[in-house]
Simulated scan of single mutants.
Amino acid sequence: MKDYIEDRVLEIAKYIIDSKSTIRHAAKKFGVSKSTVHKDITERLPKINPKVAVEAKNILDVNKSERHIRGGKATKMKYNVSNM
């Protein structure tokens, strides 16, 4: 694996752990696709640093379990704002 990819993987993982962000937010911050972030965290990171991979995966699992709630809140806000 090339050095710049390893650096990106570690930077993205650190960002996700520190900010508890979603894959979507990390992708936007680093200017890569959601697929790239997902592959970096789930496939590449465990080979580079397994301990950090577990931390990042835990945060992504929490985000995944809460995403339906965030989506519902966003929809509610969208329609409440337009009715005013």
Rank of each mutant, 00 (worst) to 15 (best):
M1Q: 13
M1R: 04
M1A: 07
M1K: 14
K2I: 14
D3A: 05
D3M: 09
Y4K: 06
Y4H: 15
Y4C: 13
I5A: 10
I5F: 00
E6Q: 08
E6Y: 02
D7T: 12
D7W: 08
V9D: 01
V9T: 14
L10K: 01
E11Y: 11
E11G: 01
E11C: 03
A13Y: 04
A13V: 13
A13C: 00
K14G: 01
Y15S: 00
Y15T: 00
Y15M: 00
I16E: 02
I17R: 14
I17H: 01
D18V: 07
D18S: 11
S21V: 02
S21N: 08
T22I: 05
I23W: 07
I23E: 02
I23M: 06
I23N: 05
R24F: 03
A26G: 05
A26H: 03
A27Q: 01
K28E: 09
K28H: 12
F30G: 01
G31M: 04
G31Y: 01
G31W: 02
V32S: 10
V32A: 12
K34H: 13
K34A: 07
S35K: 08
S35Q: 08
T36L: 02
T36S: 09
V37N: 08
H38T: 08
H38A: 12
K39Q: 03
T42G: 08
T42K: 14
T42V: 14
E43W: 07
R44Y: 10
R44P: 04
P46G: 01
P46M: 03
P46A: 11
K47M: 11
K47D: 13
I48Y: 10
N49Q: 03
N49V: 02
P50F: 12
K51F: 13
V52Y: 12
A53H: 00
A53Y: 07
V54D: 15
V54K: 15
E55R: 01
E55C: 05
A56R: 04
A56K: 09
K57P: 01
K57E: 09
N58H: 09
N58I: 07
I59F: 07
I59K: 00
L60H: 11
L60A: 06
D61F: 09
V62T: 07
V62G: 01
K64R: 02
S65R: 10
S65Q: 05
R67W: 07
R67M: 04
R70I: 12
R70V: 13
G71F: 06
K73F: 09
K73N: 05
K73P: 11
K73Y: 03
A74V: 13
A74G: 09
T75Q: 14
T75I: 11
K76F: 13
K76Y: 15
K78H: 13
K78G: 07
K78D: 04
Y79C: 07
Y79E: 15
Y79S: 08
N80W: 08
N80S: 11
V81P: 06
V81W: 00
S82L: 11
S82T: 09
S82I: 11
S82D: 10
N83V: 14
N83D: 03
M84W: 14
